[in-house]
């Protein structure tokens, strides 16, 4: 929900990532910081929704990663749009941005978007990236992330056995993981349930709540 001033743009590309997830490419209206979001609407006077930017700061266009919610207001309509169609987009905003080098980034589903944006911008900032998804098709940027981050890119698959992937949720992986030193920050992004559960695990394992920064999709 948002009501930011919107600007009309034409969709550049619309990529199918898997059955449920799409990557929507739009012209970059202004610079932004990794972790920021934009507000999107299919018409200038229609309801707006917020999406984290998924592309890097230096990419020439911006990308939005979205999950099609069949009973949702916007995403089924977004899914029908083609390159060249109009969309209304706000300037980037939000302060989930001051990422500290070497931090841990934990996401589920499309919650990886702000961290992938950071990875595209400053991969050396990513101490560890833990991504939870249902199955292999949920690990959208697997090849690129594996190539650069190696063992510091951890995939957690909640359904089905996937090669080189932890079988279970992010919270289950965290329970057995050797955590970083006390100064390390943890950035979380995903559904409220994932963020709250992950934060609880981190706190129960001795991480100071002060070191945990969350972005929740609502």
């Amino acid at each position: 929900m948002s009501n930011k001033p919107l600007f009309e743009v034409r969709i550049l590309r619309h990529e199918r990532i898997n059955e449920q997830v799409r990557l929507l490419w739009l012209p970059k209206l202004s610079s932004f910081k990794a972790g920021q979001m934009v507000s999107i609407s299919i018409a200038p006077d229609s309801s707006q929704r917020l999406y984290s930017i998924c592309s890097g700061e230096k990419d020439s266009d911006i990308a939005i990663l979205y999950d099609i919610k069949r009973d949702g207001f916007l995403t089924p309509k977004l899914d029908e749009l083609l390159a060249g169609n109009s969309l209304w987009v706000s300037a980037p905003f939000g302060s989930f941005t001051d990422f500290v080098k070497g931090s841990w980034f934990l996401a589920s589903g499309t919650g990886i978007a702000p961290f992938y944006s950071l990875f595209r911008t400053n991969p050396e900032f990513v101490g560890k990236l833990v991504h939870g998804g249902r199955d292999e098709s949920s690990f959208y940027f697997m090849n690129e992330l594996t190539e650069t981050l190696g063992e510091n890119y951890i995939r957690c698959s909640s359904r089905g056995i996937v090669k080189d992937t932890f079988h279970g949720r992010v919270t289950e992986w965290l329970q057995g993981a050797q955590l970083a030193d006390a100064a390390t920050k943890y950035y979380l992004c995903g559904s409220a349930e994932m963020v709250v559960d992950t934060r609880d695990v981190l706190i129960s394992r001795g991480v100071d709540y002060d070191k945990i920064i969350s972005e929740i999709y609502f």
């Binding site: 559904s191 963020v195 999709y217």
Partner: peptide, 17 residues
């Protein structure tokens, strides 16, 4: 029922949304 906001001090948030 539940909440999406995830405030650190809130019990409702622990139910998820």
């Amino acid at each position: 029922v539940g909440c999406k906001m995830g405030c650190l001090f809130c019990m409702t948030g622990k139910q998820g949304f």
